[in-house]
Design a binder for these strands. Structure first.
Lengths: 130, 130
DNA sequence: CAGGATCCACTTGGATACTG
DNA sequence: CAGTATCCAAGTGGATCCTG
């Protein structure tokens, strides 16, 4: 396999789409989406405030926005129980679960190379502002 | 393998770190970073304006900011040639190349599931505002 | 050519208060 | 409880001009 073909098999010269994975990044790696998906995957079905507490510092407004987007993209399922007080549960969908190997790869790269990034940063900062 | 352990082997209950892959996402999936890395990987060493033209609509200021960040994180190498006119070349580093399988996984997921996302969006939009 | 400097428009996200 | 509505601070990206 040539080094030119290791990431993509078909070469597109369209300057407007220099990176074919941009749409996926927009869907999966928007802010707060990875903590949400990660938590829902690990902890299973969960209520709104539970989710909020697990993630930490996230305001209800923003959490709602992200959950709506994830629901629209089919990565998260929302179940509304018409009771008093109302109860809403969120869970990861099958499509969301299909991201598992991807996230595993990400965690793997993190474990293998995150310290290299830290080293590079220290070298850069030390070399530019001593 | 239980479904609780498929993404992470050790369970952390620290609410401040609900998602262990957040740092990687910040490093690799900041805005413009994937087009930059993708282009540099596919096209090889490249000058500033070349890179700018390949990516499309990106202002020099922002491109410089992202390149500085990628250089600091050790993902991109910058070579300055003191000539007139000055010539600067950017290329992907070894650490940057180590992202290749990750990006491949991303492209794979994209090819397999992006249409499902589109379908989910159409269903969601059709069901909420008919 | 490769940016740095400056100014500005817009978007995001947080804080707060309120509702069904 | 599960949001929505409103206001507001901050960060971000674009446009323009300028330099070595």
């Amino acid at each position: 396999m040539s080094k030119q073909e290791s990431w993509t098999s078909a070469g597109s010269d369209d300057p407007r789409l220099a990176c074919p994975i941009t749409p996926v990044v927009d869907i999966v790696f928007s802010r707060w989406t990875t903590p949400i998906l990660w938590t829902l995957h690990r902890e299973g079905r969960m209520r709104f405030v539970e989710l909020q507490r697990h993630i930490g510092t996230v305001t209800p407004k923003v959490l709602t926005q992200r959950l709506r987007q994830l629901e629209r993209d089919g990565l998260v399922l929302r179940t509304y129980h018409p009771e008093v007080p109302p109860r809403v549960e969120y869970e990861i969908s099958e499509l969301g679960r299909s991201l598992a190997p991807l996230f595993a790869k990400l965690a793997e790269w993190s474990a293998d190379h995150l310290d290299s990034v830290e080293t590079a940063r220290l070298a850069y900062d030390g070399g530019t502002l001593p």
